[in-house]
Amino acid sequence: MSRNARDGSITAWHLWGSSALVGVALMLLLGLTLWLAYEPLAGWNAVASYTIALAKALLVVLIFMKLARSPWLLSLAALAGLVWLGTLFAITFTDYPFRQVGERIQTIPSERSQGADARPPGWTFP
């Protein structure tokens, strides 16, 4: 009986150990991103948020979804999705930053002068 129980506990560790560790890491990252979101980082808040989101996603993909231990074919499918999404973003952004004056998005003039969105609509180069 005791031997069985010990086997059971070993199995439980094998079952829970690494997954729980990843879970703890995910929780720490969640705490970190929440904290950083309220810190004045002078415009780097978004970068921090999405870098942490990427780290969390990688943990889930590589360990929970077992991509690190799977045949390359599965990674290829995932990569295809990401590469095509990247293409969608990249080519769409050949449009918006390069619009001419008449092609930029305008909101209704009366509301535009209310102050909150007083900067000229459309993209401005840094």
């Binding site: 095509w84 293409t87 050949t94 449009d95 930053p97 390069f98 619009r99 001419q100």
Partner: peptide, 22 residues
């Protein structure tokens, strides 16, 4: 074939740069 969709939008108010790329 995925990279050419904008040629349906040449007169839709897209940026001239995007039109050239497409």
């Amino acid at each position: 074939g995925f990279f050419v969709w904008g040629h349906h939008m040449f007169v839709a108010g897209m940026s001239p740069f995007a039109a050239l790329v497409f």
